[in-house]
Design a binder for these strands. Structure first.
Lengths: 224, 224
DNA sequence: TAGCACATGAAAGTAATACTATTATTTTTG
DNA sequence: CAAAAATAATAGTATTACTTTCATGTGCTA
């Protein structure tokens, strides 16, 4: 698996960047430290100026890679969903039984993230935490419809679609496959958020991942 | 019902405001037009300066009611959840059968919002749209734990708790009542958002409210 | 009805943000 | 080694999110 992944590059919509950050050492440093800093400061307090100071580089140099911090967030989130989709396809592709396949799919998207050594400048655990705490901000904007047309949310949508198709395959008469699939993906982020900040609103915890809850939810919904 | 409601004032945590906007005509104008403007511009582009211009009042006067626009959002969202809780209790209180009660509860929180004439300066339909599009921004912040301790999310948490208790009553052995309750409340907002901006990710639509989906989801989950 | 409190308005000021533009310097590469 | 490309340094702009000070108006109350 490691060998396979080492040659993989996660494709990100090239409208998210001015210059591909994967194409230079500075670009990779920008991505690497933006993840660390957004995780530390939160997206709202994170600025290109602070990032420049931290990596010993100039603010204006960062603008040559990303138009603004919103686009950087779109880049990071697209990368994350692309990375997760890869795990998803890899893990589910060879499973023939539709129920097992769906079960594995739910597991992949809802289990805790672990570090992937294949991408040394990206800390997937922290990036996941950014997704949990900041992802909605990438689409809860007045520009969401334009940006959607420009393809910034393609990977995420494709993931929801993949899950909904698995549901459909297993139970063609279930009337809400898309809603259920979007609930699993979005709900997973929300449940992780609740574990961190509103533990009384969830039954998940450090020991009980959302996987248990969503597996139960999905299979009870379609077993009728 | 109108007579009953006319004497009702929705209680909002008084830390959200410096001076109670319900206490003066200017305060009410601020609330009324902030809802209209946040709906038009989105929360991110909304500023106290613009609001001041719009209501023919000075920016500094608005600051005498709300510390900043984040606190104003906390005020508006708390008002909304308080208002919804009132409908919730009113509608479910007299129902004896636990299944009917839960069914009604899901309906109240997930059906489309209609104007309530009891609060003339508040447009509940637009406020609901603000909740759908902006609510997460009120808690996806670095200050969430402090603000949670200060009680800014009490009403929302109580609503989730009320739903989870109804689930528990109907099915004490169901292992995820809190997660399911939070899924219904948060998921409803998300499904409405998807209908507006990502229709391919949901089976809900203008004709099919999230109520249908969540009723099915909840009752299938606990009927085991 | 004078006067005082209090609400609101007007205006100016500050620090930070989110950029843009220009020019200088360093690094890469053909 | 020279040219091109990348990066750094510096300065500048408009906007935001406030804060401060002072002026004005309005309504109660003694």
């Amino acid at each position: 698996m490691k060998h396979l992944l080492q040659t993989i590059k996660i494709e990100v919509n090239n409208k998210t960047f001015v210059k591909d950050p994967e194409s230079s050492a500075l670009g990779k440093r920008i991505v690497e430290h933006s993840i660390l800093m957004i995780h530390e400061l939160g997206f709202d307090s994170f600025t290109f100026k602070k990032l420049g100071d931290r990596i010993g580089s100039n603010e204006s140099s960062i603008y040559r890679y990303f138009e603004n911090k919103h686009k950087l967030l779109l880049y990071l989130t697209s990368w994350y969903w692309g990375w997760l989709e890869y795990q998803f396809v890899f893990a589910t592709n060879s499973i023939a039984d539709p129920a097992d396949k769906l079960r594995k799919a739910i597991e992949v998207v809802s289990k805790p993230v672990v570090l992937d050594a294949s991408f040394s400048h990206i800390n997937e655990v922290l990036l996941n935490d950014i997704i949990v705490n900041e992802y909605s901000k990438s689409y809860l904007t007045k520009e969401v419809d334009t940006e959607n047309k420009e393809g910034y949310f393609e990977v995420y949508k494709r993931l929801v679609l993949r899950i909904s198709e698995m549901i459909r395959e297993l139970c063609p008469e279930y009337p809400f496959p898309s809603s259920l699939a979007s609930t699993v993906l979005e709900g997973t982020l929300h449940q992780y958020f609740l574990v961190q900040h509103f533990p009384s609103l969830t039954d998940c915890s450090d020991g009980v991942p959302p996987t248990d809850y969503f597996t139960d939810l999905v299979f009870n919904s379609i077993d009728t």
